[in-house]
């Protein structure tokens, strides 16, 4: 087992190196100019621009910049933002709580809805519950989150004035009042994203369960005279949970991708919002760091999923 993980880790390294190169090359070769933030104004003197360019190290050819960036990266240094001249890692740490508070919670809620609904749906196939769940799932993953988000804002913020549409990242949860405030400001994004996640996951769970329902061991269990309930819980559930757990692990990085749009709609100052702004500002160190960290996340969760698979399924042996 340990050797398997080690081997997988070793394979991941060249992959991450290639990824880091691709990300950096795309950014470096693009026509974006970090200096554009300094002006539409032709009177910003060229010398000043050149000075700034030099001070940001942009006068060097990009392969050299890449090597420097990568060398710093493997020492754990993500570099400095062009815009705020502060360490990128600090910016990410500042924003992570906002992303987790909204997008993370939404994913957890999505999983909590999807697991029971997906299972019931599969077991009681073509029942009313299944029909309703399937309908909602299809509607759920066919609706763009930015559309639902806008509708919620129109209804609850603009017309009813019930919920705020400015996310206050400085809110500290100390008592019931501030907790309620946090609930009020995050309920819309959590709903939108949570329902979307739930819709997708419900389908996964349902189809995984279905895969296992007609299998031989289920028949055996049934023929042993076990009650349907016991069959489902101890046999089907246990076996189909393995791929479901894997799916949930694999879905974690996608959660952050979903954050981009949701954070944009609800103005949550999280990592997705920072990434979009950094792209527009040409803040290369921030963009490169965020995208690279996401890739690391994907690679590690792939690994986690495989390891979980191995742990949960005794039939699989890794060496």
């Amino acid at each position: 087992m340990g050797r398997y993980i080690l081997r997988r880790l070793l394979v991941a390294i060249p992959t991450l190196i290639v990824i880091s190169f691709i990300i950096y090359a795309v950014l470096a070769l693009s026509p974006i100019d970090p200096l554009s933030a300094f002006g539409a104004d032709p009177r910003v003197p060229p010398e000043v621009r050149e000075n700034i360019r030099r001070s940001l190290g942009l006068d060097q050819p990009w392969p050299i910049r890449y090597v420097k960036w990568f060398t710093a990266l493997i020492q754990g240094d993500l570099g400095y933002s062009f815009m705020s001249h502060s360490p990128v890692i600090g910016l990410i740490v500042q924003r992570l709580p906002n992303t987790l508070a909204v997008v993370g919670v939404a994913y957890v809620i999505g999983v909590l809805i999807a697991l029971p609904v997906g299972m019931i749906s599969a077991v009681k196939r073509y029942s009313l519950v299944d029909q309703v769940a399937t309908t909602f799932a299809f509607i759920g993953f066919s609706t763009p989150t930015f559309f639902t988000g806008l509708l919620l804002i129109i209804i609850f913020s603009v017309n009813l004035h019930w919920l705020p549409f400015i996310y206050n990242s400085n809110l500290k949860i100390e008592d019931l009042g501030s907790f309620l405030q946090q609930v009020k400001q995050s309920i819309m994004p959590i709903t939108v994203l949570g329902l979307f996640d739930a819709a997708v996951l419900t389908r996964y769970v349902r189809s995984e369960m279905l895969e296992h329902l007609p299998l031989d061991y289920v028949r055996t269990a049934r023929s042993k005279g076990l009650r349907e309930r016991a069959v489902i819980l101890s046999h089907v559930l246990r076996n189909s949970l393995i791929p479901v757990v894997t799916l949930i692990a694999l879905g974690v990085p996608a959660v952050f991708a979903g954050a981009i749009v949701t954070e944009q709609i609800f103005r949550v100052p999280g990592i997705g919002e920072m990434l979009v702004r950094a792209i527009f500002d040409g803040d290369i160190p921030v963009v490169a760091a965020v995208v690279f960290l996401f890739s690391v996340l994907v690679v590690s969760f792939n690994l986690v999923a495989d390891v979980l698979y191995a742990v949960l399924d005794p039939r699989i042996k890794y060496t």
């Binding site: 992959t15 991450l16 995208v291 690679v299």
Partner: peptide, 11 residues
């Protein structure tokens, strides 16, 4: 492993 949506947004 590169979240494609990021790549797409950047490009």
């Amino acid at each position: 492993s590169i979240p494609i949506i990021f790549l797409l947004i950047i490009i």
